[in-house]
Design a protein around this nucleic acid. Structure first.
Lengths: 218, 218
DNA sequence: GTCAATATTTTTGTATACAAGAATGCCCTT
DNA sequence: AAGGGCATTCTTGTATACAAAAATATTGAC
């Protein structure tokens, strides 16, 4: 049933929620948006359901669809779960990763390093993505990979800014290398620990995250 | 937007998928089901979307809604993730659990023991549920709790039969006690390991799971 | 002037109608 | 008889219409 328009509309709305056009608590008006998109209410309602699935929107019976941005507490919780999921991927990958995948990780890491030296945080961001996607895959568990990807995507808008700060790139880089080293040694537990620390929000990262939240609220 | 009928219809369909009225690959016919429920196609389509969210149904554009039961591989993967999620809950609970919650766990466990002695696997099942729900809660992470509950619910139909076999009840009971002991000692790592083993599908459990799958296919 | 009850207006939820794409069957060709 | 192309039929996706619930405004009493 995924449909032409409802699909694209869902994406468009997702975009607008991420970029701040809609903020927390806003009601998504069916008729207004329908007019705006030049469609009827039906595809709009289907799009709302999609967004509710990914947690971006809350559907309240007989009341409507409301934008639901995670607050500080929920965000911390989500990052904690992300850290644990990545740790699990790392531990499983310790036993299951292929030599080829290890080579891919090294390659992604090399590009990361190049980006660090070029002070190119955007490029770092892209390669960082690749690094983590490979990890999810090499957990050898497709279901886990999907779940990790879902949460990863959901946290995207909050993670991006994290990297734009002095020293973070180099530190992040070192953490990646610890992960690869552990995986090369087949030490899943060490990889898990390294990933948990890498993803966890703590210390300096906590403050930057809170600051970015404050920005988004405006 | 959750609505009166679409909501109940989704639950009803979920029921029918679990109890085997619909099996893997079946197409859910909008018009037939609409007539059957005495409603129009609209609420049916909304219900489909709900089910797609929880992964029970796959929506293929311009083709329809198809029942999607996990195969053996996917099922093993889901159990592996469940084991890891519970392990995470356990590890976090090691640091965060309250004395009151520990008392609740002991109480649930006592009732489990009574059920074991009475050879009452249904009653054991209920208290076992409670045991795990408490654990999710005591992870101190609401988001984690929700995710754990979602997966737990999805695996429900496959777990139930697991307990109906000789020796499983007693073994499961012993595993619970190991978890409580670890948590009482504040040893998160030990609790995590105990939970991982408790939930993981391995050894005998593997064969009973495969057997139950074969039954469900008929 | 304030509060409450009621009337009005919005807005959601559902039904029906219509349009377009996919599947099926038929006929024709080779 | 087998394969391909075309027409028919069925099914999904979208629009519109209508009903019921919620929100809002209005009126009246104190």
């Amino acid at each position: 049933m995924g449909q032409r328009r409802a699909d694209t509309i869902a994406e468009e709305l997702e975009e607008r929620i991420f970029d701040g056009t809609f903020s927390d608590g806003d009601r998504l008006d069916e008729v207004r948006l329908a007019q705006q998109f030049g469609v009827s209410r039906t595809p709009l309602r289907e799009a709302f359901q999609r967004l509710a699935l990914s947690g971006l929107v809350e559907l309240i019976p007989r009341r409507g669809a409301f934008v639901r941005q995670p607050g500080p507490v929920e965000l911390m919780e989500m990052f904690e779960v992300m850290a644990e999921l990545e740790a699990v991927c790392g531990r499983l990958a310790g036993k299951r990763i292929s030599d080829q995948a290890l080579a891919e990780l090294n390659e992604a890491n090399a590009k990361c390093l190049a980006a660090v030296e070029a002070q190119d945080s955007d490029s770092y961001y892209v390669e960082n993505e690749r690094f983590h996607q490979i990890l999810y895959r090499e957990s050898g568990n497709s279901f886990l990979r999907q779940e990790a990807c879902k949460l990863h995507k959901r946290l995207k808008p909050f993670r991006r800014q994290q990297l734009r700060f002095r020293g973070r790139l180099a530190q992040s880089m070192a953490e990646h290398e610890a992960v690869v080293k552990a995986l090369t040694a087949g030490n899943g537990e060490a990889a898990a620990a390294a990933l948990r620390d890498h993803v966890a929000v703590q210390g300096e990262k906590f403050h930057t995250l809170m600051a970015s939240l404050r920005n988004a609220a405006e």
